[in-house]
Amino acid sequence: MAPSRTSTVKSKHASKHAANKSGIRNSKTSSKPQSDGVSKSKKPKGKGPPAKPQKSAGNLATLKKKRRVYTEKELGIPALNMITPVGVEKPKGKKKGKVFVDDRESMLTILAMVNADKEGQIESKMMKARQMEEIREARKAEAEKRLEIRKAKLDETKEGMRKKRKRPSAGEEKDDTRSEAAAGTRPLKLKKKKSVSFA
């Protein structure tokens, strides 16, 4: 099957080429066998174009001549009404190649420009850094304040707790006043007392 397929493909290509050739040659015999199915629509096209290019070529040639005449008269108008890419059109009157900077004045102007630019960049960087530093310091101060407030609250609550526990203990037992000097040992003792009370 494969060879037969390839042969058909080849024939298609061949037919196309042949059609084109036939179109140019205007031979009816070669065009007839290829006019199976779809190629019918191509037939008139094939016949049409050969006549057109000749006419259009003639027209274009005349048009070009006319246009050239007009462009010479009117210098500002572009020759072709087409979009030309940026790189393609070369500016007239400009020197071809690189333009070197070798004189001291132009180099100094470039240097001054670059220096000013860099100075600005450094300045803005420094300003930013200073601002960030200020913000950081402010945050630090705030955090420290918060910590102090928290500590103060904690101390207050601690004191409150101590006072609360002091009152009942002072009322019940008079001997424990000696051991109150070591504050850390107190809660343990209280627990023991509690356990004792439960027992």
Binding site: K98, V99, F100, V101, D102, M107, I110
Partner: peptide
Amino acid sequence: MRPLTETETQ
């Protein structure tokens, strides 16, 4: 060997 162009100098 050649001098620098404007962009290169920059």
